[in-house]
Amino acid sequence: MLRLSAASKRFHDDGPWVLKDIELAIPEHSFFCLLGPSGCGKSTILNMIAGFEAANSGTVAHRDRPIIAPGPDRFVIFQEAGAALFSWLDVRQNIEFGMKAQGRRRAERDPVVDRYLSMVGLADHVGKFPDELSGGMKQRLQLARALALEPQVLLMDEPFGALDAITRRRLQRAVRDIWRETGSTVIFVTHDIEEAIFLGTHIAVMTAGPEATIKSQMPCRVSEPRDPSNPEFGSLYKSIEELMREEMGDE
């Protein structure tokens, strides 16, 4: 269980509260989608869980241990893959990097690298450098790099925001398959309702900032296929859209 209790955050000592009294309980092995209008502080919550930023008050804890620094048990998939990947390392070296840093031997590393290379479908591109990959492939590489460390929690910050619709759908499927296969907890930040319903087991909707907080939390138990042809999908979509519209105002 990953838990935030009464977590609040502001960036300057007497500045406005960006987040106020965030209460979240994220069960193990769930696919938890954090949905909210842009600028509401979704990424800040993710950064607190990752350990990049500390809450000013309240607690953030993973398996009852407070989070004070980043660590390989929680890995972030950043939106800007180009910036996050190591441009001087090729595909294979990027995936290997984390395990090397942990001091794991080559014999131990190789099968893991191969496994995740094929899981994300990059086996044919091992020798390429990040700047030779398309946007979708860069995100796959980031995913493989994270998975190779077999983190308990994967944090994804609008990872598909910059991709075209088809690539996006493909990667969403891939992420869902990988999540089922690995059993890690995924926390997925997005502003796209459809994406959240397609992927999630749980959905939390945030209020608009400042002083943003969790507006509503619900399980997402839509049966397959999760697409607009399914009436369950439609009704959940409508109710979330209603919640979001209250927050967006006239926009």
Partner: peptide, 17 residues
Amino acid sequence: DQTRIRAARCMGLSGWR
């Protein structure tokens, strides 16, 4: 890039490494 530093810290790197 700050993102890159963060990615490395996720892997447990800090200080001299």
